[in-house]
Structures are given as C-alpha cells and as structure tokens.
Design a protein around this nucleic acid. Sequence first.
RNA 1: GCCGAAGUGGCGGAAUUGGCAGACGCGGCAGACUCAAAAUCUGCUGAGGGGUAACCUUCGUGCCGGUUCGAGUCCGGCCUUCGGCACCA
Length: 816
Amino acid sequence: MSDRYNPQAIESKWQGRWEADGLYRTDLGDASSKFYYLTMLPYTSGDLHIGHWYSYIGPDIQARYRRMQGQNVFFPIGFDAFGLPAENAAIRQGIHPHKWTYDNIDRMRGQFRSMGAMFDWSKEAITSDPEYYRWNQWFFLKLFEKGLAYRALAPTNWCPSCQTVLANEQVLADGTCERCHTAVTHRDLEQWFLRITNYADELLDFSGLQWPERVITMQRNWIGRSEGVEITFGLDIPGVDQKELRVFTTRPDTVFGVTFMVLAPEHPLVPLITTPDRRAEVEAYVEQARRQTEIERLSTEHEKTGVFTGAYCHNPLSDEDVPIWIADYALLWYGTGAVMGVPAHDQRDFEFAERYGFPVRVVIAPADWDREPLDAAYLESGVMVNSAQFNGFPSAEGKDAVADYVESKGSGRRTVSYRLRDWLISRQRYWGTPIPIVHCPTCGAVPVPEEQLPVILPQDAEFKPTGESPLARHEGFVNTPCPRCQEPARRESDTMDTFMDSNWYFIRYLSPQYDQGPVDPDLAQTWLPVDQYTGGTEHAVMHLLYARFFWKVIRDLGVTLGSEPFIRLFNQGQILGPDGQRMSKSRGNVIAPDEQVARHGADTFRCYLMFIGPWDEGGPFGLEGIAGIWRWLNRAWSLILSEPNFGAAEPATTRNLRRLTHQTIRKATECLEGFHFNTLIAALMEMTNGLIRAREAGPVDRAAWDEATGGLLLMLAPLAPHIAEELWARTGRPYSVHQQAWPSWDADLAREDEVTLVVQVNGKLRDRIQVGADIDEARAKELALASPQVRKHIDNQAVQRVIYVPGKLVNVVVVR
RNA sequence: GCCGAAGUGGCGGAAUUGGCAGACGCGGCAGACUCAAAAUCUGCUGAGGGGUAACCUUCGUGCCGGUUCGAGUCCGGCCUUCGGCACCA
C-alpha cells in the first residue's frame, strides 16, 4: 500500500465497494425520520459537463450530511429523456432518437458514478420508457375526464420552408426560423390544452413554502393577476344582433376619459360591426396582424397602428358614443380582447391617440393641476374630474365607486384577469409521449381505454419534419378502431410537451416498477412531499409552476399528499466559461470534468467546484485555484497518516486542540445548514493547518488527537467521500465513514478563554488587548483607558463617554 | 421601461444583531530542501507616507450625501453589471 495520496486507485475501489454493498440504497419501508432530497433530473444530452457537476455535488453533500444527521435520506436520480434535442441530433447524425438517448444515458450513468454521488440507482426512472410514459397518458385521461384537458384551435408559429410548427424558443428574435431563417408565419391548428388557469388563484398561494423570494416573485408575475371591472359598452348597429361590447379595465376611475375603443384584430365582433366602406382596410389590417408572429407583434419597438371599423359604441357612464378601432396592441386572449382608450391616463392609449387624433380628456388630476396639454399620459394619483357625480373622489375610492355603480346598474361586474394562459401541451413531433386519444368520424375525440395503455411510440416512424406530426404518416400507428363504436378511426398523432414528464417524476421515483398506478400509494403517503429540492433558476417558472399545478390536480383526483410538492427549494447558480460566457462547444470555452477527474480525482474536483464561491451564485469558472485544493487534500492525507509525539501534553495545549475541533464542528454545521460550501471548506482547511501546527508544537494528547482527526474525516466525508473513506479505514476505524453520525460540538469546549479586546478612540482602532473572556465592563474600560496608545490619542482632551461591547470592543469618545 | 440580485486586494472570495475589513485559497516575492529542476515546506504580500528596527501613521469595501460613539453592513440619491418580465388594458 503506497503512502502517497493516489485518488485514481482509491476512488474506483470505494465506488465498487459502496455499490456492491448497496450502501446508498434507501429502505423506503422505513419512514421514520424520512428525508426526501430531490435534485432536478438531467436531460439526456450526452456528456455530463461542469454545470452538471456543479449542480449535483451540492445536493450530494447535503444528502450525505442529512444522512449523517440520522435521517433516512432518499436521494434518487433519473433521466429526462424525451424532447427535441434527441430528434435534432438524430436527424443530424442519422441515428434513431431512441438509440441516441439510451446510449447517452449509459455514458452519463458512468460519469455520475465517477462523481462518487450517493444516488439510489435502484429507483432510477427514465421518462422515455413505456412504463414511465404510460402514466403520463393515464394522467392525461384523468384530466380529460375532469374536463381539465381540452382541444382548441390555437395559433402556432409556422415555418413555411421546413413545413413545421415551431416552439416559441425556435423562433429567432427577428421572427425567422432558427434552422432555415425563413420568415415564420402564423397557422391555426387544433391543439390540446390543460386548464392550468383554473388553478391560477391557488397557485398564487405560496404559504408554508421555504422558497427563494425571487422564484416566488417570478411565478407571481408569470400568473399576473389583475383585479378590475368588466364594463359593458352598448352597441347599436343596424343588422347586428350583438348589443353589448364588454371591456376589461383595472382603471374604472378613468371611464369618463374614454375617447375611443380598441378591439384585438381577431376579436369575433370585428367582421360583424365593420361598416362596408371600412371593410377592405380592416380586412387588410387583420390579415397583416395574422401574418405576424406573436413575438414580432409584442416587440417593444412596434409602433402603435390601427384602423377604424366605422362602428361606434356607447359609454354607459358618460353617455357618449366613441369610435371602435382595431389595433394589434389589443390582445385577444387578455381580458375581453377589448381596450377602452383613455389617452390621458394610459401611455399606450396616449400614443395611439396622438397618432390618430383622438381627444385627450383628463379625468384624474392632482390638486395643483395646471390644465396644460399633456405630453405623456398622467399616471400619478389624483382625484376624479370631468366625471359627473364622481368628481372629487380620490382615484382609489373612485375605482370602488364606479365598480359599485356599474354593478348596481347591471352594466358590469368586478372581475379578475390573468396573464397566465392555459398550457398548450401538443407537439407535432416524434420523440414524446403519444396523446392517448382516438379521433372517430362519428364519436369525436375518444379517450383510449385505460387498460389499453400504454399507447406505444412506434420505433419505425419516419421522424424527419415535413409539416405534420411524424406519427400522422405511420399507418400502423394511426389506423385503429374507435374504442367506442369500433368503426375505423385515427389516433391522435401529436405528442406531449416534455414538461408533462417532469411534472411528476419525483413521485415515480418512489416505485419506478409499480404497475398498478403511477406510484405505490403507501409509499406516496409516507414519502411525499419532497423535503428539499434543488435545481437551477431556469426552471423557476415553467417546471416549478407546472409541477405545482399537477400536484393540485392529483389532489383533485382524490389523492391528498400535502398542499405543495416541494417544501424547501434552493437554487444553485450557473457556471460560466472562463470568459464569462455560457459554456458551449462553439465558443471553445468548455472544461470537461472527465479530464479533471483523471488528473486530480473526483474528490479534488468536487471540493474545488464547491470552493470557488457561494453555491447559489455560480459565475465564471477557471482552473487556476484547483492546485490549492489538491495541496490541501494531500496535506490532510499525510496529516491523518502521521503520528504525532503522543505524550504528556500541556493541559492548555489539549484544551486548544479540542477547542479547534469543536469550533470547526460548529462552523461546519452552520455552513451546511446554509448551503455555504465554500466557507465549509475554508473552515476544514483552517482545521487541517491548525492540526499540523499542533503536531509540530510538541507532545499531543492521544484522545484529543483522535477526536480531532476523526472529526475532520467525518466532516470531510460529505465533501470528499473517497479520501475520507480511505483514511477512515487506514486509521483502523470501522467501515463505513458514511454510516457514522455527524459529530456534535460542545459549547464549553468551543468557548474561547481569551479574547482580543479592540480599543478605539472616536471609532478608530488604536490598540488591541488580550484579556480573559470573562472580563467585566469596568475592568475592560479601565484597561482601555490605561493603554498608552489610547492615552496618546486622547491627548488631554475630555473623555465624553466610553462605549463597551461585551467581550469585543471599547470605544473612547473624546470631544473634538 | 418595470421588478429582482450584486458591486470588497492582482484574482476567486470571507466578514452573527452595525463593532479588528480582506478569513480561506490562487497568483506574486523571498527563503529552505536539491548538483539542478519539479514537487514540498516556511515567511511576507490592500495602497501611500515615516522609521535602522520591533513599530508609527494616513487612506481604503462602485459614486455622492445622511444616521450613528462606530457603517462593507442601515437610510436617501446616482452609476455599472447580471438575471427575469416586457404593449397584460
């Protein structure tokens, strides 16, 4: 056995041993002090890069620490395996997406093992396995039964050259296709939606969650709840049955300032109310708006344009008629698809009015209103003016007064609008979960019976994009009898958004082989919700919102598992290349973890990643400092294996050694509780250096030394599991260090006997005095005032007062 | 534009409730070991000024101001960077 630290030899040895022993397999039957530690599952992109290491090492350290704290920790892993990148890579390389994905999983498993992470591989789940996506389909059927899944015509991004629908992320900022750079247009297709908007208010309730405020804010903004009033304007157009035009506003106090009305171009009233002389222009405008992608239409630089429909509507409060225009700044899906134009108090309306010459009528004014023409909308507070019986109401109260009035007159009601839209889950792509629906000419959309699940994704589909879902051209897949009438029918050929897969993977982990339902109900009851979740902020909205939605849907299916799926959430930061840019092959700034593991071992690389800065901040990554960690582990190695001069140690020496041990345990415990891995490592380095000094200084007490070195190894174990295990074994301690209890600290032993009393004159540091830790105020002040340094700076001036901070500081204040 | 976070040595970064600014590490300099180098170990290392010296002294946490005996930390106003949202009526 070599005495040199040789990570390559010990790491694979211990990984094999741990695996053979099932050291990290969790007994889910034992629910006492259970701790479900979840970390976001990786996409099967190919190789684990530095970002993966960074985001999985932190949770691994935490999971190991919790386990040493005596908790029964479940720390599973799986693969998010469906999705576009597999298809794109497959198209590019001529490999089947299935092969591409599963080859990648094999490679990634090996890389995960080289990390030394304590994942429980026996509970692995892969979302592209039929045993997994079968339950996606099962959930879909339940949602369909409950009316929470529905089909509707929806606009999509369409690339006329690739003949395919594009996700918003695939449309470049200039409105062209990311692949062929053709201008993307609109196309309306029948798509499946999930009614997440039914849960909007519930999703705004974050009570009981220990989540970063930032994430909560992002979700709140994403849902975008606005309280307002729907006001019914009158329509009196010959030959039009519709007599009402409903408009949503959050500013009912400005209703007397309406000088025009704007409808979204797609608003269903538009073709009805447009007068014959305006028809050609209106139709041209609608056509042009339809051609634009939503991205273009919503871009900030977009100038406000519109056309007059020729029709007017009646303001029930001011008793005035105002012209109805259409403009693409009105969005069909928000509110009622109509905007009341109040140019004096809304900047968009102001710009529109300036361009088309509508009057700007001030109806909210501050006390010192000077009646000059506005050069921008007035958005500040004030009282209502030019508003008939409401004149004089402060804006806030005016909102209520107008709302009360319209409600009492039956011309409106208080209501709430959301920015959140229903979740579009249809994808016209191959590599995803088939939607379990059959379209029958007589019965319509018929759900596939539960016992026929899973609807298997066929291996032999031609998946190159041609304009419709690849499955639509697979005759064997598409042609099927209608489950209801048995007549020939066609299967739904769209697949599901992959966010469906990640909605509930953490539930599946508990029983990935279970075939009576998505999860073994007993395990679900004991192990859910997740105690701690970690992952990147890029999932602050989509994944984390969809998963919360799904959790509440599951509750409404009759299974209550707690109010929220993830009690505690912590976000790690993102690792960038040395140049501060995102790491990518095309930029050439990628640092491969495998090379670093080969060079210094996994333990050094793990510690280095955690040492470079606060884990929740991330930042540019360079290898400059890795030598420091390598030296430290080598120092620790030789320290632990060295034999100090055991003998009659001075009591003070022993006391100092034990103090170092217990102070470090206290510090390390605090650091782990707060995810401060960088300062945890700093504390262990200090302890290592302190022990080396103690060993050199003279005789050392054997028991105190064993306590110190044992404690150091225990604290090192979560960070650097291999070297800790090796040294634990080499020092004759019983296997395994990872099954030991986290050390506890003793407050008396950690206490300092002496403290440095800082002495200031007028807040400036003038002296430092070593004193006993139990010094009292009088004595401290006396010593401070006696200090020659202090006397020099007082310089015969009158001492005004003396401030004392117990055990820390004396500040002498003299008149200036 | 709005919301949020952050600005500390040559570099990554530390710093309980306001109380020694710069822990820990990198890099640099000097020394030890060595025939030599690498590795390793030891010491020094925020900037300026003074002193042969231990030491003394001024300045210093993006900028300006404030509160306080005392501010990296609290308050007001700017600047910069990074995230998120962005015609949401």
